[in-house]
Amino acid sequence: MGNRPYLTWHKSAINKEDRQKLNNHKSCVLWFTGLSGSGKSTLANALDRKLYTLGMRSYVLDGDNIRHGLNKGLGFTKDDRQENIRRIGEVAKLFVDSGQIVTTAFISPFCEDRNSVRNLFPEGEFIEIYVKCPLDVCEIRDPKGLYKKARTGEIREFTGISSPYEEPLEPEIVIETDKQSLQKSVDVIVGYLQEHHII
């Protein structure tokens, strides 16, 4: 798009630190990544409910929901997946600036894309959570019937089948949903947020 010298960034009268002080907690993005069927959305929403009961300001950005609106014009090619994640990163940044804890549930299969989003945030504000689950377990769960369609060729560019998933190299948190209960998984994340003085 090139340079746009006629655009000026307007500084907000109320900054992120002011909003965090009002909310009585810090803000951050909890970036859930993992295969389809690994439990990202289920875990993100369970965590959101827990944060709500603790009086925290939080919001869930879910992959399917975002593709119904903001990103409905994007497909599943590598370029479209990259643009999908880039946009979500920018939206998440706005939520963090507003003083909220934002949880994002996206496959986000490529390390490069996740690292690009990480680079939008100061140290400690991007928390990568690898929702780890073996492919065969995800296929057995197959809550949307997507793996079956991918195996028959009805869906192309499907992560884990015809498109790669690059595991996070150094995630802040790893949740193994085939081994840990939903409650235990939520407790692990809440514990991390408390330990790092975010909440």
Results as ranks from 00 to 15, higher is better:
N3I: 11
L7E: 14
T8E: 15
W9E: 13
K11Y: 11
S12W: 05
I14E: 15
K16Q: 14
D18L: 10
Q20N: 09
L22N: 10
N23I: 07
K26H: 07
K26I: 11
W31A: 07
G37P: 14
G37N: 04
S38Y: 11
G39P: 05
L43T: 11
L43Y: 14
A44E: 11
L51A: 07
L51C: 04
R57Y: 00
S58R: 10
V60K: 04
D62R: 06
D62P: 11
G63D: 03
R67N: 11
G69F: 00
L70E: 03
N71H: 13
N71M: 08
F76I: 11
D79I: 08
D79E: 14
I85M: 02
R86V: 01
I88D: 03
E90K: 15
E90R: 15
A92H: 10
K93W: 13
K93H: 15
L94P: 15
F95E: 03
D97H: 03
F106W: 06
I107N: 02
S108N: 10
R114W: 14
R114Y: 13
F121E: 13
F121Q: 11
P122K: 09
P122L: 00
E123G: 07
E123S: 09
I127T: 08
E128A: 01
Y130W: 13
Y130L: 14
V131L: 10
C133K: 11
L135I: 11
D136H: 15
D136Y: 15
D136I: 14
V137W: 06
D142W: 08
K148W: 08
K149Y: 03
A150S: 03
A150V: 08
A150D: 03
A150H: 00
E154A: 13
E154P: 06
I155K: 11
R156H: 13
E157S: 15
G160L: 06
S162H: 00
P164G: 03
Y165G: 02
E167Y: 05
E170H: 07
I173S: 02
V174Y: 08
E176I: 05
D178M: 12
K179D: 02
Q180D: 07
S185N: 15
G191M: 12
Q194Y: 02
Q194A: 01
Q194D: 02
E195A: 04
I198V: 15
I199L: 14
